[in-house]
Design a protein around this nucleic acid. Structure first.
Lengths: 361, 361
DNA sequence: CAGGAAAATGTTTACGAACACATTAAATTA
DNA sequence: TAATTTAATGTGTTCGTAAACATTTTCCTG
């Protein structure tokens, strides 16, 4: 009945040792005889001891330096949200002794990445969060961090074989699959569908290919291949004229084009183009709640946006590191955030008001 | 540069008073001269003091009894999820001295509600969470609780004028509006659409009417009234034969029926019926991720479910009470949870595995 | 088997805030 | 103005844990 909270002191008394010994057992600091250790562990088990996290954090009055290696949001605004999430988490977790140092690199410049990663490594943080958008160049750093026993979490881009503390992000394949469903649902009659990769080299961005694969598989798994013709195009805005021409060519040569699935956060570019040409019957599905995307979502030019919750990714990354560093909790190796379907009618609940709180259950 | 954490002690030193005085100022306990109080407040402001919540909770080693007045989930399984959320929150927040006492009543029996609410009131908890499904009968209790200065939060059902600490739930109107969009998007051609209220008296359930209103307004605001004919029906499963007959009558007399919008969590009943009759062309949109709904969602019989996140509602309720009681934080008076659009392809991220995460923005 | 290192275990203080209690200063009364 | 009340302020202990520090026990070596 009496659900009394068990303290280290209680365990110590029951085991007839001092609290110091219990502490050593709990933290595997050694210097405890096997017999005593076993006895204490048994009693810990029996009494169902749960450490008081507040007292723990308060007592071990430590400051944890977390390094965030993130792309410059002034170069690609997509990265604003993760940064905001990281900063929100830092604010929330400051009281637990968490300090985040940001290392910002140019997402289009490998050398910038290497330089910042080296600097970070030199500074020997207690934990690292990063989006490893340069696969090859990141690998040697993983080794260094592992040697130095610095835990790191990945977000946005997954590299399974590097054994991170945790990966936080989305299931790209499944998000493509979901996009397939949304297009199919809104387009019951047969038509052509275009997959558009914008502004990224698919050869170097595995997640885009996964999205494409998921998308295609939706149609094949549902035996819709005869009904929908799936086209694909890679576009790059670096040359505006070429961009317009390529896009125009596809659209003009595909009179039955019903929908466009944009695999990157650049759906607004397609929307802008279609509006300029007064094309209204083509539906667009894209990713990410960036302001220009929201603009066209609210006008109805974009039907749906799949939310990758980039702010949540940043927030969660720091949060997981904190759980691990401060509270010594086990954290899930992989943490998929939901694939939120966002449309004009529910977008309010997903866009960022300052008062965001993240809860984990 | 040095982002040092400011403690009460630091303030005391700077103000040349003792920590006790600062404490009195912080908690408005009186017994401080005006001059000193002003000085201290000014310094608190200047130094941007933020209390250490852990030390606070640890120091004021208090136990907070929270009472949860909730419908019996064995009578209506919808209430299982909020209960689970409440219990999850209790587990998470136990370390902050939170204990939840559940008062379970029969959702179809007003007397049961009154009896449990009275018992609860007698027990003088430190905070209350409830879903006020009986409007009239709850009002006098609100008065009592207010007189006793016991904060209470509402979830699921909103009663604005009772001045709760917080309301947690969904925007019913907007969810109906969203349902309209989903049906419109999946049904580009003109057809009839049925609104089905199942198992609840709409006269007594304002939120169902709000859903209906939102749904209807979607079509009228988008000038679709000429394109879609909107029907409505109230069904009750208490008599299975009548239920079947009424539903059958509507369907048979509406050959162009394209979609059904179920305003309650009973979409699975419609799905079951349509399957029995081998009707495949009618799309269903409903609410809530109950197992029977999920079954038909995965089969494709139900197209979309709008997730009210009932578990999150319970969790958040306790969480907000904790924020208020333990941490003396301000909590938002209204907290709308997102209108999650759930379909077969993303349902995994919303159903409850033990490790579900609630993210709030 | 003395002497000392190493291992095992015990004790104390600190963390930051809350609160009970103690003390001092100011105001009131006799 | 001394005595007493009351307001104002200061001090010390507590919460549960971590970690530095202190002590005791065990083991090994010469």
């Amino acid at each position: 009945m009496k659900n009394k909270i068990v303290r280290i002191k209680d365990i110590a008394e029951k085991a007839k040792v001092s609290t110091g010994t219990v502490d050593r057992v709990l933290h595997k600091r050694g210097r405890v005889s096997k017999k005593v250790e076993e006895k204490v562990l048994k009693i810990i088990e029996e009494m169902d001891y749960e450490p008081n996290l507040m007292a723990r954090a308060l007592g071990s009055n430590k400051i944890y330096q977390i390094a965030a290696l993130i792309p410059d949001h002034e170069i690609d605004s997509y990265w604003y949200a993760p940064k905001a999430g990281i900063e929100k988490a830092e604010k929330d977790l400051k009281q637990y002794g968490i300090i985040v140092q940001q290392y910002v690199f140019d997402p289009y410049d490998v050398d910038s990445f290497i330089s910042k990663a080296s600097k970070l490594t030199n500074d020997k943080p207690d934990g690292i969060i990063l989006s490893p958008i340069f696969y090859r160049e990141t690998l040697p750093f993983f080794e260094k961090w592992k040697a130095a026993e610095i835990p790191f979490v990945l977000f946005n881009t997954q590299i399974a074989e590097c054994e991170p503390l945790s990966y936080i992000g989305q299931d790209s394949y499944q998000s493509g699959f979901l996009a397939g469903k949304l297009i199919h649902y809104g387009q019951p009659d047969s038509c052509s569908v275009l997959i558009a990769h914008i502004d990224e080299e698919t050869s170097n961005a595995a997640h885009l290919l996964k999205k494409e694969q998921g998308f295609r598989n939706y149609f094949s798994q549902n035996n819709l291949d005869h009904q929908y013709k799936i086209l694909r195009v890679e576009l790059n805005r670096s040359n505006a004229a070429v961009f317009m021409k390529q896009l125009g060519d596809v659209i003009d040569s595909t009179p039955d084009l019903g929908s466009i699935f944009v695999t990157t956060s650049k759906a607004h570019e397609i929307a802008k183009y279609l509006e300029q040409r007064y094309i209204k019957h083509i539906k667009i599905i894209g990713y990410d709640l960036l302001p220009p995307n929201l603009y066209f979502l609210n006008k109805g030019t974009i039907s749906f946006l799949i939310n990758q919750n980039p702010k949540g990714q940043g927030y969660w990354g720091i949060y997981q590191l904190t759980d691990s560093l401060v509270f010594k909790k086990e954290v899930p190796i992989i943490k998929y955030l939901p694939l939120d379907i966002v449309t004009k009618e529910n977008v309010n609940y997903y866009v960022d008001d300052e008062d965001v709180v993240y809860l984990d259950i």
